[in-house]
Write a protein that binds this DNA or RNA. Structure first.
Lengths: 369, 369
DNA sequence: TTGAAAGCGCTACCAC
DNA sequence: GTGGTAGCGCTTTCAA
């Protein structure tokens, strides 16, 4: 704690008119009603003049409850300001009505990449419709075990996993737990034990490369994503397959980390390796931003000297100069699909089924090729 | 669902070598152990040859438990793969060991603004140390009631609220619920009923403006944040106070929404209103990025023709060209402090106390002034 | 140091 | 339709 910070609850240090002044803390202590003993179902029932069982039924959908009882309970609920205790409820229903979105990434990246935002929104949309609460589980490598413990304790009814890496054995762990789950992006291992959605990254990247080839480019490099993600590996494979088939160089690869900075560094490396590069297939639009920046700093015009294709098409691609040709993956649809697959498992109350759904990528041509 | 998408669980549609092929779904159904009846404390106790009470004590810190019982229980826990049922536990302890981070914002903004990332990380750091789980509650205006319900049901032990707006009466609601909470940023109303941390936004903005004045700028505009946030209002007040004191124009204000686009639009408006502007005080660095972009597009050099000061200093400011002079607020410290204030309340198990802590802003000079 | 037993607040079964 | 009642899995007295 900075030394100038007064002890909480006594003084406030305020910077006013160029100097520090101490201001006595303003405390307005409300009539200390404590943590306000919440009303229980019992009290509701009593007030409504019915039994606990009837009150419970009335509150949960009102099956086999008379109109009069229904309204009496509703009235009692309102006057008491009652809301059911979720712990008690899930103790008996064995459902928590919440679902985790597991993101095994250091949090910086999560928030800089539009990929996550889109996923999150789509998932949230599906869940909200079912009145399920989404719990975001950001697990940096160091507290992976904490996360696994949380999942194992069944705080949640199921999990959606995105951006999963090679060394987190999440798919196996979740399968072993028998916890309903769905992956966005093919897992490295255990892919036959869990449900997942993916796009055909290899085909997308191959299409990107073939586009450059058809435009007459002959020295085509690849800015790849992190080695430990399947999407990155597949995209690299797609590029390689296309350049090999065309009889072009297949050694011009540099790895980035799906960030702008990563794209910059990879491009510098590639340029140092080979000056004749006239095309670049980049594994994400965010990296492509860095790629273009470095190319222009190096005096190469895009697309005249070097044509660039990105991947994702989540908004950045069309905002930069020049607007980026890219491969679109339907993230929203994918995430929605994953959410629905999860709900299916939860509803059937059984171990995950290894369903997989693969979405098609689309080439989106703009000005960078 | 797109028409090309095969029914889940039957076929997978895969784009291979330029055309669509249907691939039969690969299903590996693990021996259906159902949702794997989790072991209970009872079974642990039986296996360890002790009573449930002793097992419970052994698991929760091991007070008043013999060494032998302790190890026997530990052993049983391990072989059974036991983990306590959180619902049952919190039913009796009346604690859920999780805390909400409430963000009443449409989710796009949350993820594009580094402010949130920094807050999130700081809060997470404090909570993880205490083994509390953070639940991110993103509440767009339309499902605010859903969020309030969630809070009212006591799924969580307390809440940290950031980026709170004028019309969500969160402070009152939380105070009324008697739910422990801490705000990051002064709430509009109910500020005498809840604990909060803030920076002295008015002083910071005044300092920014005075810096421009001391550099000889005489026509100083302000790109303000959304009207319904206290930080924006305070920063606007700081600018106004400084320009008025100096006898300068105080009508050159345009509102943005704390995004780059918002900054662009506001700048265009200001430029249209007055061509002689030679200084701009901008309420956030993110907006300042847009401001600089529009200024340069309009042929004004920064800082030669127009000097610009931002606000936040969370990384963007130093990365753009020219590096931005800005006002730094210690977000990390603020969020940490808020988290600690919340933990204090939770530990004392009583209604929130209206403690407030105000942090100082700092002028950081770079190349834009 | 231990264990029996009393709940925590709720749902769901079953007999009425 | 309704209400009594048996738990859900755990912690926490309290008496031994």
């Amino acid at each position: 704690m900075p030394t100038w910070l007064a002890p909480v609850g006594c003084w406030t240090c305020r910077w006013t008119r160029g100097r520090w002044v101490n201001v006595p803390r303003v405390t307005h202590q409300p009539p200390d009603q404590g943590p306000g003993q919440a009303p229980t179902l019992d009290e509701v029932a009593r007030l409504a003049g019915v039994s606990r069982a009837t009150a419970s039924r009335a509150i949960n959908g009102g099956n086999r409850v008379s109109q009069s009882a229904q309204t009496a309970v509703a009235e009692a609920v309102r006057t008491l300001g009652y809301s059911p205790n979720p712990a008690a409820r899930s103790l008996v229903t064995r459902r928590t009505d919440s679902v985790a979105l597991v993101v095994p990434e250091p949090d910086e990246r999560v928030f800089s990449d539009p990929f996550f935002v889109h996923t999150l929104r789509a998932v949230n949309r599906v869940l909200a419709a079912r009145d399920l609460q989404l719990v975001l589980l950001l697990a940096r490598p160091e507290d992976e075990s904490r996360m696994l413990r949380y999942l194992g304790e069944r705080h949640i009814d199921g999990a959606i996993v995105v951006s999963h890496h090679q060394n987190d054995r999440l798919a196996e762990h979740l399968a072993a737990l028998g916890l309903p789950c769905a992956f966005v992006g093919r897992p490295w291992t255990g892919e036959d034990r869990v449900a997942y959605v993916d796009t055909d990254n290899e085909a997308g990247s191959r299409a990107a490369t073939e586009l450059l080839i058809s435009r007459g480019r002959r020295v085509i490099g690849h800015v790849a994503g992190p080695d430990d993600m399947t999407a990155a590996a597949d995209r690299r494979a797609g590029w390689r397959s296309a350049v090999t088939t065309a009889g072009l160089r297949d050694d011009l690869v540099a790895c980035g980390d799906f960030t702008e900075i990563g794209g910059e560094e990879a491009t510098r490396a590639l340029l140092a390796q080979c000056e004749e590069i006239d095309g670049l297939v980049v594994a994400s639009d965010l990296m492509a931003v860095g790629v273009v920046r470095v190319l222009e700093a190096a005096g190469r015009r895009v697309p005249d000297d070097v044509a660039v294709v990105g991947y994702d098409d989540l908004g950045v691609a069309e905002r930069i100069t020049p607007p980026l040709t890219t491969i679109r993956q339907p993230i929203g649809d994918m995430a929605e699909q994953a959410a629905r697959m999860l709900l299916d498992q939860i509803d059937e109350r059984r171990a995950p089924r290894a369903v997989r759904v693969v979405f098609p990528p689309t080439v989106v041509e703009r000005a960078s090729t």
